[in-house]
């Protein structure tokens, strides 16, 4: 047992960015020098973050795996614990356990076109994977990023998307279910944009994050276009409390999402997708 993953390490908030009225990004640094130096994560993994007097929650790791010392977590204020986290300031100390789980299949991007489909804040867990593929531009084919949001005001990281858009052979498609006055993207479901995708589906890999129904619809469209079931990857979410496969909350039939996932290929979970109550 790796003990430091069961007991939090001390981390300091070194930066805080207000992404939107309800979304913020914390940059963290492990206080202990040795822990700081030893920490490594894989894109798609998550940490358990603890705020003193408030509680502990799982948050996926944003940021660049080639710069593991700057741990970024983008959080949306939804419940009691995230409301507490929203009040954190630079210099505050919190607890961090991690990283946990299986990350994205980075080896499989080699020589393939890469499609990223995200919904809502779903983009966060794939940001490190986008950074990873953009750093290896020569080894991967075309890159397409499809991002859907509920309301155009929820769209964050405009600059980041503009930078990605400027990269060669990179296609960015944005969709908002409901759009405000300055929205330049598409208004409607993100899955309506699949016909605009300029990638070689037969030789592609897709990584998805966001609402399950969106990912299920997207998977159906991908299968219709000849994508192999082993090349369609989901990042799944369930209640997680221990992160080590013991507390039982994240069970998805026989899977423990915290340990066996959170990233799964379509063929491992196809029998469970969309079944209410699992």
């Amino acid at each position: 047992m790796t003990f430091e993953r069961r007991i939090p390490m001390q981390a300091e908030v070194v930066n805080r960015v207000e992404e939107s009225p309800t979304i913020f990004t914390l940059s963290l640094r492990l206080v202990d020098e040795q822990q700081h130096n030893n920490y490594r994560f894989a894109p798609g993994q998550f940490n358990m973050l603890y705020q003193y007097g408030v509680g502990e929650i799982p948050i996926s790791i944003v940021g660049d795996p080639s710069e593991p010392y700057l741990l970024q977590h983008t959080i949306r204020t939804v419940g009691r614990v995230t409301r507490g986290f929203a009040k954190l300031k630079v210099g505050d100390r919190i607890g961090l356990r991690g990283p946990f789980g299986r990350g994205w299949p980075l080896d499989a991007v080699q020589g393939r076109d890469v499609l990223i489909v995200t919904g809502g804040l779903g983009c966060a867990p794939v940001v490190p994977v986008i950074n990873h593929v953009l750093h290896r531009r020569g080894q991967v084919g075309r890159i397409a990023i499809l991002q859907g949001v509920k309301h155009s005001e929820d769209f964050i990281w405009r600059e980041r998307y503009e930078q990605w858009d400027a990269e060669p052979d990179t296609q960015i498609l944005l969709a908002a279910d409901v759009s405000g006055p300055n929205w330049k993207g598409f208004t409607g479901r993100v899955t309506a944009l699949f016909d605009k995708l300029d990638i070689d589906f037969a030789n592609s890999i897709t990584m998805m994050c966001g609402p399950e129904l969106m990912m299920i619809s997207a998977a159906r469209l991908l299968l219709e276009r000849g994508v192999s079931p082993a090349m369609i990857w989901f990042s799944m979410e369930r209640n997680m409390q221990c992160a080590v496969g013991h507390c039982g909350h994240c069970q998805y039939a026989e899977k423990f999402i915290c340990r066996d996932g959170p990233v799964f290929p379509y063929h491992e979970i196809r029998h469970l997708l969309g079944v209410r109550g699992f």
Binding site: Q10, Y50, G95
Partner: peptide, 17 residues
């Protein structure tokens, strides 16, 4: 109890199993 968190005077946190 799995672990305990102890705040210090300077806002630091100490965790013990």
């Amino acid at each position: 109890t799995l672990w305990q968190a102890q705040p210090g005077a300077g806002g630091e946190l100490e965790f013990s199993a």
